[in-house]
Amino acid sequence: MDDMVRNTLYSSQPTLISMAKESKQIVLMVDDDPDDQEILIMALKEVDKDIVCTALSDSLEAMDKLKKDVSFVPDYIFLDLNMPKLNGLECLSQIKQLDHLRKSRVIMYSTSGETKIIQKCSEIGAAHYLVKPTGFSSLIEALVSIFKHN
């Protein structure tokens, strides 16, 4: 699936971000919905075609990996809020306790946009809160602005 995504050219595209980078950006995505994974990764690729994406469906598995594999330091971690077993918030808290991930930017990714929850995520240390947009272009726009931020 990754190949397919990589080979896609999204024509009338907004500006490609050219960044001065020493290495390729690494993105970890944790979401139990395969469609959402696919969409996000596709969008990311549009933003940065060199981006390296990893998608994991099981939050427990994901956390396990993050804890054990200290060499794996994503630049961005996208967390779906609504997941079985360990939900997004719990993952966020745990990530924030991991020293080697202190530079990783965690972005909460959810369908709900409740102020309370957004506040909570911010308190715990999320870098951004992204409401799953309706439509592909809006998603790309949102991602651009997130990356620009940095």
Binding site: Y10, D36, I39, T111, P133, T134, G135, F136, S137
Partner: peptide
């Protein structure tokens, strides 16, 4: 409403993707 929105959102996104492909 919450749970129905999810597939709805997806449909919109998929439609969007299709339009541009």
């Amino acid at each position: 409403s919450h749970d129905l929105q999810e597939p709805l959102r997806k449909i919109q996104t998929f439609a969007d993707i299709i339009q541009h492909n």
